[in-house]
């Protein structure tokens, strides 16, 4: 599902300025060009995670950046492990 910037704002309930700041920080990486950004559902879910970190966990801006970096590595490792599991299965068959 592709979402325009305004659709994203209304679905996520975010403020325009906050969204711009998060994109600036590269916490969110929408696709498309700078004047015509497109978002997808993963961006909405990621925005919710960032909000949970800030509002519920009391993480400050520096902390959010660190956590997202680690979270991205964690998911990267999980996906590589999944591929490895597949490779091992194929090899052992």
């Amino acid at each position: 599902m592709k979402l325009s910037k305004s659709e994203f704002l209304s679905l996520s309930g975010m403020e325009h300025n906050t969204l711009n700041a998060w994109i600036e920080e590269e916490w969110l990486l929408p696709s498309g060009s700078s004047v015509d950004l497109t978002f997808s559902e993963i961006d909405i879910a990621r925005a919710q995670l960032i909000r949970d970190l800030q509002a519920d966990f009391g993480v400050n801006d520096e902390g959010v950046g660190v956590i997202l970096h680690l979270v991205d590595q964690l998911y990267g490792m999980r996906s590589t492990l999944l591929e490895l599991r597949h490779a091992v299965r194929v090899t052992s068959e």
């Binding site: 909405i44 879910a45 990267g76 996906s79």
Partner: peptide, 22 residues
């Protein structure tokens, strides 16, 4: 609620993927 993990684990090619950890 759909969580971030639902997308990050299932989508093969999302912009946040980072494989530098190992």
């Amino acid at each position: 609620q759909k969580y971030y993990r639902d997308y990050a684990s299932s989508e093969q090619n999302h912009p946040y993927a980072d494989n530098s950890g190992f």
